[in-house]
Design a protein around this nucleic acid. Sequence first.
DNA 1: TGGTTATCTAACCGTGAGGTTAAGTACAGT
DNA 2: ACTGTACTTAACCTCACGGTTAGATAACCA
Lengths: 108, 108
Amino acid sequence: MDQLSATFAALADPTRRAILARLTEGPATVKELSEPFDMSGPAISKHLRVLEKAGLITRGREAQWRPCQLDATPLREVSAWAENYRRFWDASYTRLDALLTEMKENEQ
Amino acid sequence: MDQLSATFAALADPTRRAILARLTEGPATVKELSEPFDMSGPAISKHLRVLEKAGLITRGREAQWRPCQLDATPLREVSAWAENYRRFWDASYTRLDALLTEMKENEQ
DNA sequence: TGGTTATCTAACCGTGAGGTTAAGTACAGT
DNA sequence: ACTGTACTTAACCTCACGGTTAGATAACCA
């Protein structure tokens, strides 16, 4: 699976997006991350594994804790990918497109 | 499944992203969209169904054709979501963050 | 040493995703 | 009316996902 697909797949789950949102406030242990969810530990562990494989988090070791930290690097690609479609949803870009089309037609 | 999850899930497949890319050049029939892929018709039909349910394409009817058209509206949400993480990957934002942190520490 | 806490691994389960083939539907052209 | 083209539906297969429980591992604490 390519990087971008892995990133999108990781982001497709609301639990994982919530974990990322929590990590914007700083590192956290697995226990802390699992608090908000009515879900078993292993389930959270699996989500963290998915996020780690997608490169969205990194994990350390401190005694019996495995602190998680956000790594937003893959989101740069997501943002860049979406940007290529901005002109298809952004009204001002649409107007610009229309203007350019009109100019192109007039010059023929 | 919520809208954002559906959008991310739809984008997680490279075939579907390629279809969207093709549709930026204008509407296309199912046959045209399936040309680049070594894949059966029904497989493409399923991908189009996923894209349609995610609101990323709209479909018309013209005789025996079902032309597909890009609708990038859901990508606005994707872009907005990613923007919330920009400061975690963008170097200039990182420097700004560091500066703000330093200022905050100094004023205490 | 024993007990508690944090976390992961293993085995399992139900469901849905992504693919196939075969058959059905709908329209066009002759 | 017949044939071909475009597309969908139905049935099926395989496999990965998201969850579970039970047991293993590792570190701290008394």
